[in-house]
C-alpha cells in the first residue's frame, strides 16, 4: 500500500494542479494578511474560504484523479496486488497531497507574519486540521462516486451535486426547517443536523473556537455545552474521523466487488 501511496503521491506532486492549488492558498494567505495584518481577523476570513473551498477542490480532484488514472489502475490490477491496497493507496495519495498543498500554502504566509507568536495559533492550527479533515472526507466521497459511476460525466455531475448539497442546499433546508418548526425545541435537532454534514460540523467547531459561542444565546445552550467543552471537541473530532472512515470503508467494499 505504501508503494502505491508513494506512486500516487509523487505523481500528484509532479502534476501542475497541485502547484496551482498550493500557489492559490499561498496567494490567499499573503493577500489576506497584507490587507488585514491581523492574524486573528485573517483566521476568521480564512474559515469562510476553507469550509467552502476544500470540499469543492477535494471532490473535483478526487473524481478527476480516479477517472484519469483508470488505465494505470487497470495495469496495477493485473499485478498480484490486493485491491484494497491499490485503492486505499491512491485515495491516501490524493488526500495527502491536497492536504500538503493546503497546510504549506497557508502555513508559510501565516508563519511569515508571525502566527506562532500570536494568540491565534491554536485557532489557526484547528483551522488547518479541519481543512485536512474536510479534504480527506470529500476525496473519499469523490472516490465513492467515481467507483459507482463508469460514466465520467455522470460522476462529475454527482460530485458537484454532492458538494452543492452539503455546502449550500443542506443549510437552506436546515434553515427552512428551523424557521418552520420554531415552536418546538430545536436544540437536539440542530445538533444532529450539524453532525450529518461535515461542512456544518467543521464550521461550528471553528466558530466556537473563535468565541462566537456566546452568540448562540440561551437557545444555543445545548450547543455551547456540547461543542464548547473538551468533550464536545473530542466528540466532534470523533464524528469527523467517522466521516473519513465510513466512506473509506465503502471504497474498500466497493473496490473488492467491482468488475473491471
Amino acid at each position: 500500500m505504501l508503494k502505491i501511496f508513494k506512486y500516487s503521491f509523487f505523481d500528484l506532486m509532479r502534476s501542475r494542479w497541485s502547484y496551482v492549488y498550493f500557489v492559490f492558498y499561498l496567494l490567499i494567505g499573503f493577500v489576506l494578511l497584507f490587507l488585514n495584518n491581523d492574524t486573528s481577523k485573517a483566521v476568521i476570513t480564512l474559515m469562510n474560504i476553507i469550509v467552502v473551498l476544500t470540499p469543492l477542490i477535494g471532490t473535483i480532484f478526487g473524481v478527476m484523479y480516479y477517472y484519469n488514472s483508470r488505465e494505470f489502475t487497470e495495469l496495477l490490477l493485473a499485478q498480484p496486488l490486493k485491491r484494497t491496497t491499490i485503492f486505499l493507496g491512491q485515495y491516501i495519495g490524493v488526500s495527502f497531497s491536497l492536504s500538503l498543498s493546503l497546510v504549506l500554502g497557508l502555513g508559510i504566509p501565516f508563519v511569515a507574519y508571525g502566527v506562532t507568536q500570536s494568540t491565534a495559533i491554536f485557532d489557526f492550527i484547528s483551522l488547518l486540521l479541519v481543512g485536512v479533515f474536510l479534504t480527506f472526507i470529500f476525496v473519499a466521497l469523490a472516490f465513492n462516486i467515481a467507483l459507482s459511476n463508469e460514466n465520467k460525466i455522470k460522476g462529475f455531475g454527482y460530485a458537484i451535486l454532492l458538494w452543492l448539497f452539503l455546502a449550500v442546499i443542506y443549510d437552506g433546508l436546515f434553515l427552512i426547517s428551523l424557521v418552520l418548526f420554531q415552536e418546538y425545541p430545536l436544540d437536539q435537532f440542530s445538533l444532529f443536523a450539524t453532525i450529518f454534514n461535515p461542512i456544518d460540523l467543521s464550521r461550528i467547531v471553528i466558530l466556537l473556537k473563535l468565541d462566537i459561542s456566546a452568540l448562540l444565546g440561551y437557545t444555543g445552550a445545548v450547543f455551547q455545552k456540547f461543542f464548547g467543552t473538551n468533550i464536545g471537541i473530542i466528540a466532534s473530532t470523533i464524528v469527523l474521523i467517522l466521516w473519513v472512515l465510513l466512506p473509506t470503508f465503502r471504497i474498500v467494499v466497493k473496490a473488492k466487488k467491482k468488475d473491471f
Binding site: 449550500v168 443549510d171 434553515l175 420554531q182 456544518d200 462566537i212 444555543g220
Partner: peptide
C-alpha cells in the same frame, strides 16, 4: 432578521447559504 425571528438559526452563521 431571521435570527431575530428564530434565534436557533444563529447556528448557520457564516455559512455559504446565509451569505447568498
Amino acid at each position: 432578521y431571521i435570527v431575530n425571528k428564530t434565534p436557533e438559526t444563529v447556528v448557520l452563521l457564516r455559512s455559504l447559504f446565509v451569505d447568498i
